[in-house]
Write a protein that binds this DNA or RNA. Structure first.
Lengths: 162, 162
DNA sequence: TGTTGACCTCAACTTTGGTTCAGGTTAAAG
DNA sequence: CTTTAACCTGAACCAAAGTTGAGGTCAACA
């Protein structure tokens, strides 16, 4: 299919799992794991050894970056699954799937900032300001102030020692 | 020791595990777990049931807040261990140990922001800009460019398809 | 041709933060 | 006094993201 010419060295465009590990900085066991999870694929040699396309290096890079961003492997896998299977992904493809992470990062930075600001308030008041601040109240669950003892941490906290 | 006067209702200043669960919004099983890990403590009744001091409510609140901030339980436990054992923690005590989380949050927000900006660059260039950006290079490990094949993801990535 | 070093699979183990279950005890209300 | 809800312990289980080890094969160098 791809006219492998043994005379041309850069024709060796397949990577062993060890090559991939060395160049990606990811352990062989992790690469096996990614493959079991379907995040990367390989063909097998006659001796049942894995051979990866060079493109896989980029996939692994994407996986690593995504993990740094804090995305779980399952989500990364879902994103990778939207890449075309019939051709090598283009810059546009990578741009598209990276965009989702960017939005996600924005949201998480925003959330952490809010958390920090609340924490500042709480530190400022010196008592974690449990009745007044939403810190102890993860998703504004007090708003749904429904049945049972859903007052969470609020009651009794302002009144104890400290 | 504490002259319990059965005539005064708010003398009931101990909480059962169920009370604590209801007021903190944390499952009984999680409270048991925290106790096994040493994050909270209880005395036992003659019938071997746990009784928590009201102060424990604040500890649990602190644990929950800290977890939202993304601190692992072990670190939370270490922080709680610095609280005085001989007296009820003061506002100042809580302020001190909360401050560490604030600094941690600052650092993590900063890191995520940098990550996001790099990601923007990479999306901008359309190819994850693997040679030029530090995204794939977690802790600037290239700087320590020592032995072996520590070039991580860099080589060969710019040259493959996509 | 022989012997390393790299590769293979499968299963078990790790850590974190818990939940669920089984089997048994306590406490409080009727 | 009985019954029921809440409590107790210990063990097993869950997910995520792998690592480690055992036992066996493959390939490349001398």
């Amino acid at each position: 299919m791809e006219a492998p010419n043994p005379a041309i060295p850069w024709d060796r465009d397949e990577l062993t799992v060890g090559d991939l590990a060395a160049r990606s900085g990811v352990a062989v066991s992790a690469l096996h794991f990614y493959e079991r999870k379907g995040l990367i694929t390989s063909r097998r040699t006659s001796g049942n050894q894995r051979r990866y396309r060079r493109e896989t290096l980029r996939r692994v890079a994407f996986i690593r970056v995504s993990q740094r961003v804090g995305i779980p492997l399952a989500d990364i896998g879902a994103a990778l699954a939207t890449l075309p299977g019939d051709r090598t992904p283009t810059a546009k493809d990578w741009r598209r799937i990276s965009q989702a992470w960017h939005d996600d990062l924005d949201a998480r930075i925003e959330q952490l900032s809010r958390l920090r600001d609340h924490l500042t308030d709480c530190i400022g008041c010196g008592c974690l300001s449990l009745r007044r601040c939403t810190l102890t109240n993860p998703h504004d669950e007090l708003a749904e102030a429904g049945p049972g003892p859903r007052t969470l941490l609020v009651e009794g906290l302002e009144s104890d020692g400290a």
